[in-house]
Nucleic acid binder design. Structure first.
Lengths: 200, 200
DNA sequence: GCTTGATATGAACGCCCGTTCATATAGCAT
DNA sequence: ATGCTATATGAACGGGCGTTCATATCAAGC
């Protein structure tokens, strides 16, 4: 049977995407079979190939659209003029985005090694572009004299790791909690890059 | 043929361990087959079962001995009396250990989801024990009034993530470089937990 | 020198994998 | 009503998986 009521391309495709996203995030790319994904959607394994070339293409689409969404979301952020304000915006943006889409984020840095070399190159470029945003903000702050770090590159990596780490332990618990989370992290970041004691 | 010259239990077993460690770290537990591990050692797949009950037991041993080694290595560190000095010691210890044994560390936090529930519980307990070390040091520093953080638990998680993140980008490049790495990271940590500007 | 036990083989087991394809159905255009 | 096309099935493909086991070989103990 085909074309059941309400089963069009626009419905099944995203359902496959969502199922793959959740399963890959939970069990890892290599540990999830096409049949498991299909079962989650309520379809046979062969149907997946109507929408994705193969398993690798499915993973790549998840990671690629995630990186595009992430970069686009940052572009949409309205930034203050001052360097420190921009770093504050980045910190809060990064945490908010990572808390909102934990599965995408998790896959994006966990399954890099599951990509074919060509696909890896594409994702890696976008990943570096994102890191570059923070790195440039730090450089700008340094030029303005408002921040003071020993090594911009190392600070960038340290901050990214620290902020992304939220993903490993924090789970959404209401809007207020996330607001506090962002505030606390910005407090730590600000100290790290300015050395200034921030008022309680 | 069996018992080739120089092929005893004391030789083959660790060779299997080492091969599994490297392959799991590189490709992930689920993506590596027993035959691949055996081939790396120059043995047939069946031989692995003379030393390990199954694939899961092999992974568990890697993770369990890693956690034991990590905790034991920390116990062996001679600590200063002051809280800040202890936090400095922890920071340098953590980085040094992670830089020295990147594969063990990588597996230990990457393959938690590949463990059976019972094995996971064991590793998780040890992982929490390790985090607890840092958490207690922060609490002690707070009691002494030498450190000032808004939330000890969140600071602990942020620091662990930041320090462990070294593993994702740093590759051994001589002893001096690592010394500098430790110094820079301690500089960032100290600022984060004291808010003090450290002299260049 | 013979026996014994540790060490390894390699074939085999049943199972699941990613992927393909002939076939069938369901909704749309005519 | 009829044909067309998008959508899905389900069986099949070759292959690799984790694991077991009868068998063989080697080193050491008597």
């Amino acid at each position: 049977m085909a074309r059941k009521s309400g089963s069009h391309s626009e419905i099944t495709r995203p359902r496959i995407r969502d199922a793959a996203l959740r399963l890959f995030a939970r069990h890892g790319f290599a540990a999830v079979s096409m049949r498991q994904i299909a079962a989650e959607v309520g379809v046979q394994a062969g149907a997946i190939y109507l929408y994705f070339e193969d398993k690798q293409a499915l993973l790549f689409e998840l990671m690629d659209t995630h990186m595009d969404d992430l970069l686009a979301a940052w572009e949409a952020v309205v930034l203050p003029e001052d360097a420190l304000g921009r770093l504050r915006a980045f910190t809060r943006f990064h945490i908010a985005y990572h808390v909102e889409r934990p599965d995408d984020v998790f896959i994006a840095y966990m399954e890099l090694r599951s990509l074919t070399p060509g696909n890896f190159a594409v994702i890696e470029t976008k990943r570096r572009a994102y890191e570059r945003i923070l790195e440039d903000l730090l450089e700008a702050g340094r030029a303005d004299g408002v921040i003071d770090v020993e090594d911009v590159r190392i600070t960038t990596m340290a901050l990214i790791a620290m902020l992304t780490g939220v993903n490993t332990w924090y789970r959404e618990g209401g809007r207020l909690a996330r607001e506090r989370l962002e505030r606390i992290y910005w407090g730590m970041v600000e100290r790290m890059i300015t050395g200034a004691r921030v008022p309680a």
